[in-house]
Design a protein around this nucleic acid. Structure first.
Lengths: 98, 98
DNA sequence: CAGTATCCGTATTGATACTG
DNA sequence: CAGTATCAATACGGATACTG
């Protein structure tokens, strides 16, 4: 439990994973797709997710930089969990909770 | 996503839900079954979970007090989510992550 | 563009003493 | 036994300026 939450428990991690579960995205794409997130938080969370092995960082090595993030093979095992959270969250929202 | 995490995202909430998904428990039972938790955190989280409608508080009304907590009917819809988190967490632990 | 470094406010947690 | 109240530590997130 704690382990799982330590991976997806950050303020924006779940959202990031959600976005990337649809398709890989560049850093700037992610940033635009989550307007409220700050530079710092996006990078920070991305790094942690990479470190935790659920994301893969693909650096084109060019200049200017071109970095893409995608769910790792392992990270895809997390998709159902993220999906479950998301679905439940919708219901709870309607119900009038948090 | 955010909604769901706001419900189970507390430091101990997932653990509490996990325990209660097996069977209803008294306050003191819960406390003993989660040694690291403090009085304050246990009560606080229990209250929030009740407020969020996923737990039901059953007060026998006796003295000394005898209070039992159990998953509400609605809270049981959360069991699969908690289960998924737990299962994934185990795998991640084995794999060597955070 | 992607990422780093620094400063700061607050939400969350923890420790502990106390009440009915 | 279940719950409250108070105080202090810190982890977390946010804003911003800067680098290669």
């Amino acid at each position: 439990m704690d382990t799982a939450l330590s991976v997806i428990g950050g303020r924006w991690k779940a959202t990031i994973l959600w976005r990337l579960s649809e398709r890989p995205m560049r850093t700037s794409e992610l940033r635009r797709s989550i307007p409220a997130i700050t530079e710092r938080m996006l990078i920070r969370h991305l790094q942690e997710l990479v470190r935790d092995g659920v994301l893969t960082r693909i650096d084109a090595g060019t200049v200017p930089p071109h970095v893409t993030y995608e769910l790792s093979e392992y990270g895809q095992t997390l998709a159902p969990v993220v999906g479950a959270l998301c679905e439940w969250g919708r219901g709870h929202q309607r119900r009038g909770g948090a």
